[in-house]
């Protein structure tokens, strides 16, 4: 089973990377871009039967290691494997 953990900088946290990307997009003519925030997507291949159980486990991983609650928030969801 594949578990996706998406980690984003919290609202109000300085995101200079997002700002730099936004400026570059403006230079390319995409003036409609009002804000850019850059985060991180982590894909976990796990041996698990129950998606809900796997998500709970991944949330623990996020709390412990994958995200830093001081500065980041995260979302976890399971993706059914397509063979």
């Amino acid at each position: 089973m594949r578990i996706i953990v998406e980690v984003m900088p919290k609202e109000g946290i300085l995101d200079p990377q997002g700002k730099a990307v936004q400026q570059a997009l403006h230079q390319l003519g995409y003036g409609e871009v009002r804000e850019v925030r850059v985060g991180r997507r982590i894909e976990l291949e796990v041996d698990a039967g129950d998606p809900a159980e796997a998500v709970r486990s991944a949330e623990q991983m996020a709390d412990t290691l994958l995200a830093n609650e001081n500065i980041e928030r995260y979302q976890v969801h399971a993706v059914e494997e397509t063979v």
């Binding site: 946290i13 300085l14 200079p16 990377q17 730099a20 830093n68 001081n70 500065i71």
Partner: peptide, 17 residues
């Protein structure tokens, strides 16, 4: 030390990148 919780807070990317 901040990651280990021995000191509060976090260190972010420099504003200048």
């Amino acid at each position: 030390l901040t990651e280990a919780g021995l000191l509060p807070g976090a260190l972010l990317r420099n504003r200048s990148l």
